[in-house]
Design a protein around this nucleic acid. Sequence first.
DNA 1: GCGACAG
DNA 2: ATCTTGTCGC
Length: 270
Amino acid sequence: MAQEAVGRLPRETLSRWKREQAMLKALVVDRNTEAWQQDPAFAGLQRVGGVDVSFVKGDSAGACASLVVLSYPELEVVYEECRMVSLTAPYLSGFLAFREVPFLVDAVRRLQEKQPSLMPQVLLVDGNGVLHHRGFGVACHLGVLTDLPCVGVAKKLLQVDGLENNALHKDKIRLLRARGDAFPLRGRSGAILGVALKSHDHSTKPLYVSVGHKISLEAAVRLTRSCCRFRIPEPVRQADIRSRDYIRRTLGGPGPLCSGLRAGPGPGAL
DNA sequence: GCGACAG
DNA sequence: ATCTTGTCGC
């Protein structure tokens, strides 16, 4: 299925990607580096960012990359940028960053140019951090390249290092009762790779939170929890909503501009 | 051959 | 990720 993409990749690309991940992994800081991260109320935290990439349905390359910044603790959007991009790398489990991260780094750079005062103090990233095949997921990758604290927030368990979405795991999920309940994800190696977090009182599926860069797992989980009005943390949710909306307005909206570009022959065509 | 496969 | 409407529940 998805791994068919492996065959369409230049011979040496995969090993180059692995080398790059190994190099950059050495630069990851998996502990708190900012004063607000230690504070029980996150005093001093004012801006939380969220990033996401949404796709054009029929197209494997067309996508919209978005970066939003929310005020904290109000969680109101104070900055938004959506941009159509053309993806080049295919999606490969374990190499998500090579597909999406260049565009997210660009978005952060443009924010730095346009509104440096709105630079987020931390980014919530759709995907994993150190909970990854080689301990270097997209949240680590984006963190190292931007030097921003980053948190990985995945919606599904990436089954690595002995972690399995098996009956035992599902039982642990059932034991999560209220928002904030969580359990650690300990890899076969013994290391705690992340936390399964119930982010909403009425959500069945937990969030899988892991360290991206410049934040401890404890602070990452507490921050994620405090950013959740619904299951998905508001910064990521807003980035997702707005990027999909942007695609809809750009390619799906009614009007003469798009009528000739829609799928299939229109009325009157042979 | 079988299962796994963030987004 | 995306394909997809209504529907059941709080």
